[in-house]
Simulated scan of single mutants.
Amino acid sequence: MNIAYWIVAGPLALFYFYAGTLKVIRSRDQLRPMMTWVDRLPLPALRALGTVEVLGATGLVLPPLTGTAPCLASAAAIGFVLLQAGAIAVHLTGDDRRIVLNVGLTAAAAVTVWSATRA
């Protein structure tokens, strides 16, 4: 993988690993101040979402590092683009209209897809 991939994918993986871990281990009350939408999802779905984020972050980093199935990094990045499309929809259909972070994460994941396919 090239340097451009790691410049974008590294911080993206760290963000999703952190956010996913929070969704897996914290209570709804602890998440509510930073994620106002948590009451709109059942707790098992919230935990599953966190697990998907942690696995996706692992998919961005591990395959390129080991050289085993590097196409999985592209798949993980595409998954994050789709995840953020859903997140934007959740924010826009609820009371929370703050989607700047989601748009930025979508762009970063799209750049990651592009840079992963060029390597």
Rank of each mutant, 00 (worst) to 15 (best):
L65R: 08
F80S: 02
T68E: 04
R97W: 05
C71M: 14
T66E: 04
I88Q: 03
M35L: 12
L49Y: 03
T93S: 14
V81F: 09
G94D: 09
L31V: 05
L83A: 14
A45V: 12
R98C: 09
R32N: 04
A85H: 12
L41P: 01
G50V: 08
E53N: 05
P70I: 06
V52A: 13
L41T: 09
T66L: 14
F80L: 04
P70H: 07
V52Y: 13
C71D: 08
P42W: 02
T51N: 08
I99E: 08
M35D: 13
A89V: 13
T36L: 03
T68P: 00
L41C: 00
Q84Y: 13
L60M: 07
P33S: 06
V90A: 15
A76L: 02
L92T: 11
R97S: 15
D96R: 03
Q84R: 05
A87T: 05
R97T: 10
F80K: 07
P44L: 01
I78C: 06
A48P: 03
P70K: 06
L43R: 15
V52G: 06
Q30A: 14
P63M: 09
L60A: 05
A48Y: 10
R40L: 10
P63E: 02
G56L: 12
T66Q: 04
R40W: 09
R40P: 01
Q84D: 08
L62I: 14
L83V: 03
F80A: 09
V38R: 01
P33E: 11
D96M: 07
L31Y: 12
A45L: 15
M35W: 09
I78F: 14
P70M: 09
T36G: 15
P42G: 07
L46A: 03
L41R: 08
F80N: 00
L72K: 05
G50M: 13
V54H: 02
L82S: 10
V81L: 06
E53V: 11
T93V: 09
S74T: 15
T68N: 04
P64R: 04
A57N: 08
A73C: 08
A69F: 14
M34H: 13
T93P: 00
G56E: 10
R97D: 09
T93Q: 14
M35Q: 06
F80Y: 09
T68C: 12
V52P: 04
A57E: 05
V61D: 12
V38A: 02
L65S: 02
F80V: 03
A48C: 00
H91A: 12
E53K: 10
M34D: 11
V54S: 06
A73N: 03
G94M: 06
G94F: 06
I78M: 12
I88P: 02
L41V: 12
G56S: 12
L46D: 01
T68W: 14
R98Y: 07
H91S: 05
G56M: 07
L41D: 02
A45G: 01
A69V: 12
R47E: 05
L55M: 14
L31W: 10
A69S: 09
A87N: 04
R40E: 15
P42L: 00
G94L: 08
F80C: 01
P64C: 06
P33L: 01
R47A: 02
V90D: 11
P70R: 10
A69C: 07
L43N: 13
L60T: 07
I78K: 07
Q30D: 15
T66C: 00
L31P: 13
